[in-house]
Design a protein around this nucleic acid. Structure first.
Lengths: 252, 252
DNA sequence: GTCTATATACGGATAGAC
DNA sequence: GTCTATCCGTATATAGAC
């Protein structure tokens, strides 16, 4: 697949993608593998409550339940998803479903905890391998886009259902949001200190970067329709942000 | 109130705001007045269905019903808002409520039609008074921010509840979204033709501008906490966008 | 115009059969 | 492990009093 982005923003593309260490296809594989571990962790964490003893079965059905929950909720909202809806989509009866969770609340908590931990784990693995501020900024942007692309249904769900979470879950979601913003603000502050970046309000800038990243997973169908790939969007986002932040970015 | 923005992004502030024609305070008054007309229109449009004959009463209660709907829905979602909730918040009994609308669906349709028309009317009034691309871009950004600030509850509601709209309502919402994007893309294309703007993908750029504008009304409480005013955010957003689009924008 | 009382339906959750 | 049948609470919408 040719990278349409290069024509629009010359100077940023192939080389950078290699430096960020991993193609999107590789990244997707990594996420898939990590999710299997995450499911096992979830099962272990709820061993006392989950009545199904066979691990194979339990994991297979948990996986089905989670992905059905995301699918239905992203169409009509978590509140509006009935247990009967979930039963239809998973092929399990309502009775059977209740041997995996005690109620919708717990289902939501389990799902959120698993996916949030998964995101954190992958982020920590992939960020922080560069010390140069420019590279750190580019990598952070690309990795976040890759991550939200590979886990799009959950990112969308998490954003749209934030207000329906229990207060403790909502707190965790908010602090994870602010943490992301701080990562970008820190990169910007360091770059400003070393003179690579222009003096711009780091928090406001980080906020706008986050808005640009969020647009990617919130408007997925629009980008699909326009045939914008995640790499093209990443190139574009990086160019947009660097035009504002980077000293001498007009050079290329 | 001192404009904190000027320190961060020198060169863009007071003069521009005057050129855009109207302070935010003026703008809020305009919206308030226009909404009264809009309520009268709504009443006229549903005269056959609304059983309350006294216009004063009908308008007063419609207004209460709409603002209560936004308030409750923005806390727990429209689906989760019960008629009993609405009854408590408006002070009207459930029976009385049903003499203003035939069901939640119709309530939603009435509210959406009224506020969407209001937005369109005000946008058309305020945009298009400049011919210079730079001024048009600045004005469009600031007006959109003013509008979403003055009508924040509805903008937030409309974004979050998009998936609950009936298919015809959803279509209208989507096309209105794309229309906004086209306004920005057009400004960018014209500026590129006349050489004021750099050659950048107009649609992708317009999409990112819209993402930046949406962040303002979606993350309202964050900005309130950080004491970022709408004018400060507008200055910052304009500087951010111009760094990417505008030829010689590094000058100031 | 607005209220209270109520019919009707739907969703969450459980019991007990297989 | 999973299913069917069912209890019970809550929500929408309406009827009829004031």
């Amino acid at each position: 697949m040719p990278e349409q982005g290069s024509a629009v923003v010359p100077g940023i593309s192939r080389s950078l993608r290699v430096q960020s260490g991993m193609s999107f296809a590789d990244f997707e594989r990594l996420v898939r593998a990590s999710r299997e571990d995450a499911l096992r962790d979830t099962l272990a964490r709820h061993r006392h409550a989950i009545q199904v003893k066979n691990e194979q079965t339990a994991i297979r059905n948990l996986e089905r339940i989670f992905s059905a929950t995301l699918k239905i909720s992203n169409e009509k909202g978590f509140q509006a998803m009935s247990i009967r809806d979930l039963s239809k989509e998973t092929g399990l009866s309502t009775g059977a479903l209740y041997s995996y969770f005690s109620g919708k609340d717990e289902l939501l908590t389990m799902l959120q905890q698993q996916e949030r931990d998964l995101v954190q784990r992958i982020l920590l693995e992939r960020i922080g391998e560069h010390s140069d501020p420019t590279e750190r900024l580019r990598t952070a942007i690309r990795i976040h886009l890759y991550l939200s692309e590979a886990m799009q249904p959950w990112f969308y769900f998490s954003y749209m259902e934030a207000k329906n979470l229990s207060s403790s879950e909502r707190k965790k979601a908010v602090s994870s949001e602010l943490y992301t913003e701080e990562i970008f603000a820190d990169i910007l502050r360091n770059g400003q200190k070393s003179g690579v970046f222009k003096k711009r309000d780091p928090l406001l800038t980080a906020g706008i970067i986050k808005a640009i990243l969020q647009d990617w997973y919130l408007k997925r169908s629009k980008f699909a329709r326009r045939q914008v790939s995640v790499n093209k969007y990443a190139d574009f986002a990086i160019a947009f942000v660097e035009a504002f932040c980077r000293e001498h970015s007009g050079a290329y």
